[in-house]
Structures are given as structure tokens and as C-alpha cells.
Design a protein around this nucleic acid. Sequence first.
DNA 1: AATGAATGAGCATTCATTCAT
DNA 2: GATGAATGAATGCTCATTCAT
Lengths: 201, 201, 201, 201
Amino acid sequence: MSDQRRAAVLKAATRVIARDGLTASTASIAAEAGLSVGSLFNYFPTKTALINALYLHLKRDLAGAVVEPSIPPGPLRGRAWEAWRRWIRWGAADPDKQRVLMLIDVSHELTGRTREDGVEAMQGADSLFAEARPGGPFADQPLEFLVATVGAMAATTMEAVAREPEEFESRCSAGFAAVWAAIVISERPSGSDADERRSRP
Amino acid sequence: MSDQRRAAVLKAATRVIARDGLTASTASIAAEAGLSVGSLFNYFPTKTALINALYLHLKRDLAGAVVEPSIPPGPLRGRAWEAWRRWIRWGAADPDKQRVLMLIDVSHELTGRTREDGVEAMQGADSLFAEARPGGPFADQPLEFLVATVGAMAATTMEAVAREPEEFESRCSAGFAAVWAAIVISERPSGSDADERRSRP
Amino acid sequence: MSDQRRAAVLKAATRVIARDGLTASTASIAAEAGLSVGSLFNYFPTKTALINALYLHLKRDLAGAVVEPSIPPGPLRGRAWEAWRRWIRWGAADPDKQRVLMLIDVSHELTGRTREDGVEAMQGADSLFAEARPGGPFADQPLEFLVATVGAMAATTMEAVAREPEEFESRCSAGFAAVWAAIVISERPSGSDADERRSRP
Amino acid sequence: MSDQRRAAVLKAATRVIARDGLTASTASIAAEAGLSVGSLFNYFPTKTALINALYLHLKRDLAGAVVEPSIPPGPLRGRAWEAWRRWIRWGAADPDKQRVLMLIDVSHELTGRTREDGVEAMQGADSLFAEARPGGPFADQPLEFLVATVGAMAATTMEAVAREPEEFESRCSAGFAAVWAAIVISERPSGSDADERRSRP
DNA sequence: AATGAATGAGCATTCATTCAT
DNA sequence: GATGAATGAATGCTCATTCAT
């Protein structure tokens, strides 16, 4: 019983925070959840606790959407593509979730512990991209840098899809092409400009 | 005279908002600027106006740092690299600026007009990356999608550099390699995994 | 329970506003009512709402005092006298009420709706005076003009009584004689000066 | 020179206070007068001093309008009528003046001294009505009560005229008929209701 | 005299949190 | 466990007044 209510609060918080930002009042969240102010605090002792729980909840929700049902074996690129597609679809299905995740991420409400747990939750999804690291631009970079880059590109793609849902396929594919190139390509491609000589990196 | 103070307020706001988030009180900003509460409002009529002005100020500051002194002519990739380098250096020089830009961007304080002006300010810098669009993953995508992706990757790189300033060169190069590949590569690269068969895009 | 508190706030507001004017702080009103600042706003969402509610409350309080218990049938003048007497007594019993009514009336805080409701509330009392209109100076004037005149004379009488409460009977009678004459007399009286020649009206 | 500016400030204050109430800021008054904030305080040391000066200024303005040019000798009623007519015309010519007078009167900004001076200024005008007191309802009442009643009726009439300027003549005449009856008539008139028996006063 | 930036106390209002029921 | 009135610190903003120029 408690768990249902808890989930209802988290859902309500997602909606309200997506709309009003993190300054959304606890009262408005409670109202959206069909609860009294007082009851909200039976489930989460403070607003900060609620926000941390919400962050973790959303990260796990996302992670679950990406890795379940489990992606069938096959070439790495294909599995990464499937993960990416699920990821973007998750964002398209409820843009509020992604927005709230971002709002919390950028705020200072997050405890170090929660952030770590969030990273851990996403590890299953991230690993597919991490596997492609060797030989690419991130070969000698910390894994977090790669993961953060992939996450940022996913966020950008989701935002684009949220703005034009009917372009889901197009944006999703383009985003993946970009992210895969970004991770995997280490050498000079047959790029759009031919005469590359003096460039440094 | 007024302009110096105004600039001082914007600088103070950057510092305080980076530390406390957008909920930083006008009083704390005024104090940081060495002003009284009341005086703050001689320079900006409302907190929202201050935040909009700050956003534009930072965007222009960044744009200026990227395009001045003007990048010497040469192959596109080389010029893009120079722009990227300046961009990341700007973020490394004062991570608060980038953080505040991001906080404002994600908030709802921004008027449509300010956002447009910000995009316009960055056009000089963005155009270098935009030029590389044809033939790449973003060839058929709206320009904004490409620009947003580049911005997100820059933000990620800046964040990584802010965390480990001594790794500036390494992260900057890797970031550029990734972003350039993401924009320019359209075809299957000689990636790290050989057996690609069932992948879709 | 809520209603008791609400009434307590209105009572406190009457006292404090009578003393300090409409610029009385919400904090001082809350304190006078034995409430915290925050609680005040559980009962009235804004200060303006409080002032409008107070206005209506006082108008209805006055109207109630004038028409209840109901005035026994009889000649019009006698009933009007009874109404007037009750009216002035109401003002004498708590001069703050009349003062606050006047302060609000002259301010710009009042919504058109509240003002209309206030007029409606007093209709029972006003009608006694309105009935005497035909044949008097206000015969061809809008009813509001007559009502406003009676109200202004009542206010003046109440003020005089508030200054010298022991003169209640004297002022009350004189005020009524004046107001009744003002409403009822249309023709040249056997006034105090005999030789009227060039006067116009 | 100083006097011109001073007068300009009083004029500006009248306009602004009529519009915004007594909470009108000194800054807005200065702006309306074409002065800087700082300069305003060269003419009036405090806002309270300005308001007191304004009150007296307006009272004297009104008194001047009523008694100048001097009313030719003749029967009392005729002279009173002329005074009344001038009074209402003064209010019709600039309703702001009357409104501001009332706002100040009802506020607590007025020093006792200023109020006394205001009464004194109006004495010329009031005396005409005061002369009619003997034999009327106010025969045994303090002069102030009569004067206040006449003032209240004048205010009501001016307000009615301000609302419908084209009805000036009608309202002015009716108002005078009422005020004259109110002051002069002491006995039972041949009122609109015939069977008066049990009424008390 | 005139200016207008600077000051900071004061105000209406919000909100996380508590607690008696 | 649920409720929602109560709390009071905190916030954005205003404004009379001062004073260096």
C-alpha cells in the first residue's frame, strides 16, 4: 500500500517539477498526487529526500527501459543501436522524465551517494557504448567522460524528438550515427572537406 | 559609471548563482557585488530581467571568446578545431559561466526573445560546425539539432576539464575528435567491431 | 473552526486598520488576531482579498444592525428615524468600523463587484430613505445620489458622536432632523431669513 | 522661482495622489513635476510635510474659489446658493483636488495644526451656512457639526457631478436644496407621508 | 539649487516542515 | 496512516530619505 502511494508521489512530482521546475512546492506535488501536505512527509522526510528518490527512480526507470527485455546477442553496433533506440523512445514516451532528470542533475540537491547509485543503475546501458571505446577518441579518456558524452547526446536527441515527435525515426537514427561515430572513429575520415593538412588533433 | 556597476552585478550573479543555483537571493547577489539590496534594482528592474541579461551577457562573452581574435582562414577542420579549443578554454577559465548558462537554459526564466538573441550571438561560432553538416549524420536534420549536439558535447567536455583542469589538452582533443566525427562521418567507419550485419541505420 | 478564526482576523483588521490606515501591515493584523503571518494567508489569499472581505463584512454588519430586529410597521418617518438611530448607534458602538469602511471606500482596493455587493447589502436600510424621495429635492435625481447623501450625513453624525459619545441623543436627533429635511422638503420653508428675492433654485 | 517649482510640485502631487492614493511615491510625484527625486526634498523636507502643505494649499484654493470675487450682498439664501454653486464648480473643474482633499482628510498624515489652518481657511465660505443655523436642526449643535455636514454634502454632490459632468446644474441645485433644507428647517414639513404621529424627534 | 545613485528598513507573500486531531 | 492549520524564516521588491557631485 505504502509503495503504491510512494509511486504516485514520484509520478506526481515528475509532472509538477517538469512544469514548474525544482521550486515546485511540496504542496503542489502532494495535491497532484491526491495527498495532503502532511501525508507527503510520511513517505519522504524532506523535499531533498524526495528529489533524491525521484532521481534514482527515474534513472532506474530509464535503465530498465533500455535493458529490458534483454537485447539479443549480436554485433556490438547492432546492440548499441537497439539500446539507443530504446533510450530515445523512453524519452519520447514521457519527456517529463528526461526533463526532470536533467533539472535534478544540474541542481545541487543531489547527494553524492544518489549520483553514484544513478551511475550504477545505468551501467548496463552504458556498457554497450563503453565497449566501443578502444580505438576511438575516448580510448585514453576516463570512462565517465565517454558516458557523459553519450548521455548528453541522448538528451539532445530526446529534446529534439520531444519537440517534433513525428520525427522520431529520423532524429533517432541521426543521433545514433553521430554518437557511434563520436565514440568509434579515431582517424581522419573522408570528411566533407578534402584539403586537411595543418589541423592539429 | 553605471556600466561598470552593471557588469559587477553580472559578475557577482555569475559567482553566486553558480554556487547556489537560480534560487540565489537577490540580496546575496547584491552583497557579492558590494551593493545594497535596493541598488541592485536600479540596474535590473526584476530578478527575471537580471537573469535574462546575465544569460545574454554570458552567451556574448562566450561568442566573443570563440570568434575573437578572428580565426585565420584555412581548411574547415582546422578552423573548427581552433574554435573548439577557444570554447573549451573559455569554459576552463571560468567554469561558473558555463554552469550558469546551463542553469538558466534549463530553467523557465528565459524569455523567447532572450533565447533567440543568444542563438544569434553564437551564430559565428556555430557556423564553423554547421558548415561541416553536408554529408554527415545531420545532413538532413535541422540545423538546431546539430548545433544543440555540438553545444552539449562542448558542455560535457568543459565539465570534464573543470573537474581535472590539468587534463585540458587531453580532454579538449578527445572532445574535438568526437564532435568532428559526429558531425562529419556518414558512412560505416572501419570501426572497432568488424562483423556488422543486422544493424539498421 | 475556520470561520471563527476568519472572523477574528476581520475583527483584528478592523482595529489595526482604524489605527494605522490601510497601509497597516499584514503582519500587524495577524499579530492582533493572535496568528502568525503565514496563517493569515490561509484565510485570505492576498491583502486585497482581505480588504474586500472586510468591507463586505462591515457593510453587512451595519446592514444587519439597521434592519434587525425588523422595524415595526408605521409611518415612514418613524421607521426612518428608527433606522437612523440604529445606524448611528452602530457607529457609536464601534467607531473603528465606520472609519475602516470609509478608508476602504475611498481607496482603490475595492473591486467593482465588492462595491456592488456592499450597495446591495445596504438596500434594506437605504430603502426607507429612498421611499421619501418623491416630492423632495432628490425627486428627479438618481437614487445613488440620495443614498450617497444620506450615507455622508450618517458618517458625519457618527463622527460627531464618536468625538463626544455622551452627546449621542442630541447629535442623533439633530442629524436625523437634517437628513429628513434634506430628503423630504422641496419647497421654500419658512426659513430663518425672510427676504428672499434673487436666489435661483 | 522657488515658489513656481513649489506650486508645480503641489500640482503634480494632486494629480498623482488622485490617481494612486497617498501611497504614491515621492519619486512619481517628482517625475510628474519634472523634478529629480532629490530636488523634491529641497521644497518639502518630508513626504508628510508635502502632504500637509498640499492639504492646506487645496483648502485655500477651494476657499479662494468660493469667496472670490466677493459675493454681492443680498438675502442669505441667495448668497449661500452662490457660494455653494462656486464650491461645486470648483470640484467639477478639477475633481482630483476634491479627491485628494478627502484622501488626506481621512488619513492620519495631517497634523492638528494643519487641520486647524484648513478650517480657518474655509471660514469665509462656511460662515454663510453657519449664519442659517439658528432655528434649524443644528441650532443647539456645535458649529463644527454643521460645517462638517455641509462639507460632506458638498463632497457628495461634487462626486456626483464628477461622475456625470453634464448634469452639473441638476445635481448642484438638488444638492443645494437638500443642504439648505437640512440646515434651515426645524419643524415638521408637509412631507410626503401624511400620517405622522408616533415619530420621536 | 539640482541631480540621481545608494541605502536598508519594511512589506506582501511563499513554503518546507510540524503536530494535534 | 492521514489531515491540513499553524509556523516563521526567507524572498523579491519598494520607497522615503541622504549625500557626493
